[in-house]
Amino acid sequence: MRPFTHLRPDTAGDAVATVAADPDAVFLAGGTNLVDHLKLGVATPGTLVDVTGLTSTAVEDLPDGGLRVGAGVRNSDLAGDPRVRRAYPALAAALLAGASGQLRNMATTGGNLLQRTRCAYFQDVTTPCNKRVPGQGCAARDGWTRYHAILGAAQDSAGLQHCVAAHPSDMAVPMLAFDAVVRLTGPDGDRAVPITEFYRLPGDDPSRDTVLRRGELITAVDLPPSPIAARSTYRKVRDRASYAFALVSVAAAVAVEDGTVTDARVAFGGVAHGPWRATRAEDVLRGAPATDDTYRAAADAELADAAPLDTDVGGNAFKVPLLRGTLTSTLRTLVEGAA
């Protein structure tokens, strides 16, 4: 582990200025992913700029009926917030499905959005990884891909660096389904980025997970008012019953009238470089009868472009039927529960 300086600026502005000016500096919040990476040598910053206490730790009501979640709000507090539990149950459920009670007490909202892939090759500096070292190659492509992407991954082709990593966040999945907005402060001022545009596909630069610019700091996440979100849920399938990352996960909200789906929000976790908004599935669902056939058709529409990996070490083709089954089961349960 490389030695580093630890700074604790007085304001978010000072923190932003420091990181913007120093390419060797990074923000430190809850530390649950960064400290892990420091030990592994995945992250080698020269300066840690501690933003603990510099962003809000409150969940505030917005005038439009939505909620503003401070970037410093711990995952456990967000999951326990009665407003979140009532109005955005899929978000509370996703938070509670993530990590462990201890880690949820440490991890922040901002940090959760920015956690990095758990690709075993990304985390092992003795194996090549385009995300860690652009141009180095991808050990995962023919390797162990059980926890890797099947949608939107960068396959080798002209100008693209191979990356099949999947984003590990549970929290981000319902936030995507509910059209959350990520509020940022940076060296050029504040801006708000819809979460639908916040995460990148690996494309030509897998080293970048999001559209954050150098020195930009997440200050809050706005959850817009969403009546449909009150009837939402989160379903996570993993290799053990708890304390494990998702193989696949589904955040879903549906409105049903007289046996017909009138509206739907669906997002997936564990299957792409970021949380994945299933707009094609939503399109199939809207106006269709609330039946298993519809749910499966919705899954198949979204999975039409899936490109699972078949490797000697352990592929991920199983994620296609798994996601189909998980979406079907989740929607069925949600609709039956509402009836």
Partner: peptide, 13 residues
């Protein structure tokens, strides 16, 4: 006062 994992908490922080 809350359960946490000190292995991921930097002492200086």
């Amino acid at each position: 006062g809350r359960r946490a994992l000190p292995c991921l908490a930097l002492a200086v922080a």
